[in-house]
Amino acid sequence: MGNARLWGLKKSPWVFHLAAAPCNNCDIEILDLITPRWDVERFGIVLVGSPRHADALLVTGVINRKTLPRVLRVYEQTPKPCLVIAIGTCACSQNIFTPSYNVVGPYDKHMPVDVYIPGCPPKPESMIMGIVKALKRL
Protein backbone atom coordinates (compact mmCIF):
# COMPACT_ATOMS: atom_id res chain seq x y z
CA MET A 1 0.00 0.00 0.00
CA GLY A 2 2.69 2.44 1.03
CA ASN A 3 4.82 1.48 -1.95
CA ALA A 4 2.00 1.92 -4.43
CA ARG A 5 1.21 5.30 -2.96
CA LEU A 6 4.81 6.39 -3.21
CA TRP A 7 5.09 5.17 -6.78
CA GLY A 8 1.95 7.01 -7.80
CA LEU A 9 3.13 10.19 -6.15
CA LYS A 10 6.55 9.93 -7.75
CA LYS A 11 5.24 9.25 -11.20
CA SER A 12 2.50 11.83 -11.35
CA PRO A 13 3.11 14.88 -9.21
CA TRP A 14 0.52 17.48 -10.15
CA VAL A 15 1.60 20.93 -9.18
CA PHE A 16 -0.37 23.98 -8.18
CA HIS A 17 1.31 27.28 -8.75
CA LEU A 18 0.88 29.46 -5.68
CA ALA A 19 2.15 32.93 -6.42
CA ALA A 20 2.34 34.86 -3.15
CA ALA A 21 3.56 38.32 -4.10
CA PRO A 22 6.47 37.44 -6.34
CA CYS A 23 7.88 39.89 -8.87
CA ASN A 24 6.38 37.60 -11.54
CA ASN A 25 9.72 36.59 -12.90
CA CYS A 26 9.76 33.25 -11.13
CA ASP A 27 6.23 32.56 -12.41
CA ILE A 28 7.27 33.10 -15.99
CA GLU A 29 10.14 30.68 -15.48
CA ILE A 30 7.71 28.12 -14.04
CA LEU A 31 5.54 28.46 -17.13
CA ASP A 32 8.66 27.77 -19.18
CA LEU A 33 8.66 24.29 -17.68
CA ILE A 34 5.58 23.23 -19.63
CA THR A 35 6.79 24.58 -22.96
CA PRO A 36 8.15 22.16 -25.59
CA ARG A 37 11.72 22.98 -24.70
CA TRP A 38 11.59 21.53 -21.18
CA ASP A 39 8.31 19.61 -21.26
CA VAL A 40 7.92 18.36 -17.70
CA GLU A 41 4.95 16.24 -18.73
CA ARG A 42 7.66 13.66 -19.50
CA PHE A 43 7.81 13.11 -15.74
CA GLY A 44 4.05 13.26 -15.35
CA ILE A 45 4.13 16.79 -13.96
CA VAL A 46 0.98 18.69 -14.87
CA LEU A 47 0.02 22.19 -13.89
CA VAL A 48 -3.46 22.05 -12.32
CA GLY A 49 -5.85 24.89 -11.60
CA SER A 50 -7.18 23.92 -8.20
CA PRO A 51 -5.24 23.16 -5.00
CA ARG A 52 -7.61 20.22 -4.41
CA HIS A 53 -6.02 18.38 -7.32
CA ALA A 54 -2.44 19.20 -6.39
CA ASP A 55 0.32 17.02 -4.97
CA ALA A 56 2.88 19.77 -4.81
CA LEU A 57 2.63 23.49 -4.22
CA LEU A 58 5.10 25.66 -6.08
CA VAL A 59 5.39 28.72 -3.89
CA THR A 60 7.06 31.83 -5.23
CA GLY A 61 7.57 35.27 -3.82
CA VAL A 62 8.30 36.77 -0.49
CA ILE A 63 5.67 36.09 2.13
CA ASN A 64 4.17 39.15 3.84
CA ARG A 65 1.42 40.01 6.28
CA LYS A 66 -1.23 40.07 3.59
CA THR A 67 -0.33 36.84 1.85
CA LEU A 68 0.52 34.70 4.88
CA PRO A 69 -3.08 33.79 5.87
CA ARG A 70 -3.97 33.05 2.26
CA VAL A 71 -0.94 30.87 1.69
CA LEU A 72 -1.72 28.92 4.86
CA ARG A 73 -5.33 28.55 3.73
CA VAL A 74 -4.30 27.09 0.38
CA TYR A 75 -1.86 24.78 2.14
CA GLU A 76 -4.68 23.50 4.33
CA GLN A 77 -6.94 23.03 1.30
CA THR A 78 -4.45 20.78 -0.44
CA PRO A 79 -5.07 17.08 0.19
CA LYS A 80 -2.16 15.40 1.94
CA PRO A 81 0.44 14.06 1.22
CA CYS A 82 1.65 17.21 -0.47
CA LEU A 83 5.08 18.62 -1.13
CA VAL A 84 5.93 22.29 -0.78
CA ILE A 85 8.54 23.54 -3.20
CA ALA A 86 9.95 27.01 -2.58
CA ILE A 87 11.04 28.54 -5.86
CA GLY A 88 13.30 31.56 -6.04
CA THR A 89 15.44 33.30 -3.50
CA CYS A 90 12.41 35.26 -2.30
CA ALA A 91 10.73 32.09 -1.12
CA CYS A 92 13.87 30.40 0.23
CA SER A 93 15.24 33.30 2.22
CA GLN A 94 13.83 36.76 1.71
CA ASN A 95 16.08 38.09 -0.98
CA ILE A 96 16.54 41.86 -0.78
CA PHE A 97 13.31 42.33 1.13
CA THR A 98 14.67 41.15 4.48
CA PRO A 99 14.67 44.61 6.13
CA SER A 100 11.10 45.40 5.04
CA TYR A 101 8.51 46.08 7.75
CA ASN A 102 5.88 43.96 5.99
CA VAL A 103 7.82 40.73 5.55
CA VAL A 104 7.07 37.92 7.97
CA GLY A 105 9.91 35.58 7.25
CA PRO A 106 10.59 32.80 4.78
CA TYR A 107 8.13 29.98 4.16
CA ASP A 108 9.76 27.41 6.39
CA LYS A 109 8.89 29.49 9.42
CA HIS A 110 5.19 28.83 8.75
CA MET A 111 4.90 25.48 7.01
CA PRO A 112 7.12 22.50 6.15
CA VAL A 113 9.10 23.11 2.96
CA ASP A 114 10.54 20.09 1.14
CA VAL A 115 12.63 21.64 -1.61
CA TYR A 116 14.47 24.94 -1.86
CA ILE A 117 15.39 26.12 -5.34
CA PRO A 118 17.38 29.34 -5.05
CA GLY A 119 18.01 31.74 -7.91
CA CYS A 120 16.53 35.04 -8.94
CA PRO A 121 14.81 33.62 -10.89
CA PRO A 122 16.07 30.01 -10.96
CA LYS A 123 16.68 28.49 -14.37
CA PRO A 124 14.12 25.93 -15.53
CA GLU A 125 16.88 23.33 -15.55
CA SER A 126 17.58 23.91 -11.88
CA MET A 127 13.87 23.65 -11.07
CA ILE A 128 13.64 20.32 -12.86
CA MET A 129 16.74 19.14 -11.02
CA GLY A 130 15.36 20.21 -7.67
CA ILE A 131 12.03 18.51 -8.21
CA VAL A 132 13.60 15.31 -9.51
CA LYS A 133 15.97 15.19 -6.56
CA ALA A 134 13.08 15.67 -4.16
CA LEU A 135 11.08 12.91 -5.83
CA LYS A 136 14.07 10.56 -5.63
CA ARG A 137 14.45 11.22 -1.94
CA LEU A 138 10.82 10.46 -1.10
Binding site: M1, R5, G8, K11, S12, W14, G44, D55, P79, P81
Partner: peptide
Protein backbone atom coordinates in the same frame (compact mmCIF):
# COMPACT_ATOMS: atom_id res chain seq x y z
CA UNK B 1 1.74 4.18 -17.80
CA UNK B 2 0.99 7.83 -17.01
CA UNK B 3 -2.84 7.60 -16.77
CA UNK B 4 -2.58 4.51 -14.57
CA UNK B 5 -0.09 6.27 -12.30
CA UNK B 6 -2.38 9.29 -12.09
CA UNK B 7 -5.31 7.07 -11.26
CA UNK B 8 -3.44 5.09 -8.60
CA UNK B 9 -2.14 8.24 -7.00
CA UNK B 10 -5.60 9.81 -6.86
CA UNK B 11 -7.07 6.64 -5.35
CA UNK B 12 -4.56 6.64 -2.50
CA UNK B 13 -4.76 10.34 -1.73
CA UNK B 14 -6.82 12.09 0.90
CA UNK B 15 -10.39 12.86 -0.18
CA UNK B 16 -11.70 16.16 1.08
Amino acid sequence: FQPYADFLKLLLKETI
